[in-house]
Amino acid sequence: MNASSDSEEQWILRLYIAGQTPKSIAAFANLQALCEAHLAGRYQIEVIDLLEQPQLAQGDQILAIPTVVRRLPLPIRKLIGDLSDTERALIGLDLRPAPPLGDS
């Protein structure tokens, strides 16, 4: 495996959920699969259940769940949903550049 200059960069991700709903479970499974495929050994996922810790929603300004917040690397990015659209999730987390406007 070739190492690029940023290959050692650590990714810190927070997944905000509200209980063990099917959508929350899918979001965690999809996030973990994306991370294993693209960030193996370089990521940390912190799951925050807002049913247990509702006060934590304010810090990251969580308005919908499930939401993934990329804490590191900066800048902070947020992605709402269960991450089932892999391409959208990769672009949203900045693991893949967005296609140029006008392309479909």
Rank of each mutant, 00 (worst) to 15 (best):
A3I: 00
S5M: 12
S5K: 13
S5C: 06
E8D: 14
E8M: 12
E8L: 11
E9F: 04
E9Y: 05
W11Q: 08
W11G: 03
W11N: 06
I12W: 00
L13Q: 04
L13K: 06
L15R: 02
L15E: 08
I17Q: 13
Q20S: 14
I25H: 02
A27T: 00
F28W: 11
L31P: 00
C35Q: 07
C35M: 13
L39K: 15
A40Y: 13
A40I: 00
I45D: 09
I45R: 08
V47Q: 15
V47L: 13
I48A: 08
E52S: 11
Q53R: 12
P54L: 10
L56M: 11
L56F: 04
A57I: 02
Q58Y: 05
G59Y: 07
Q61D: 03
L63I: 00
A64R: 13
I65S: 05
I65E: 03
P66G: 11
T67N: 06
V68D: 07
V69N: 03
V69D: 00
V69F: 05
R70V: 04
R71D: 00
L72P: 01
P73R: 12
P75H: 12
I76Y: 01
R77A: 10
L79I: 02
I80M: 13
G81H: 07
G81Q: 10
G81N: 13
D82K: 05
T86E: 15
E87R: 11
R88Q: 15
A89S: 15
I91E: 15
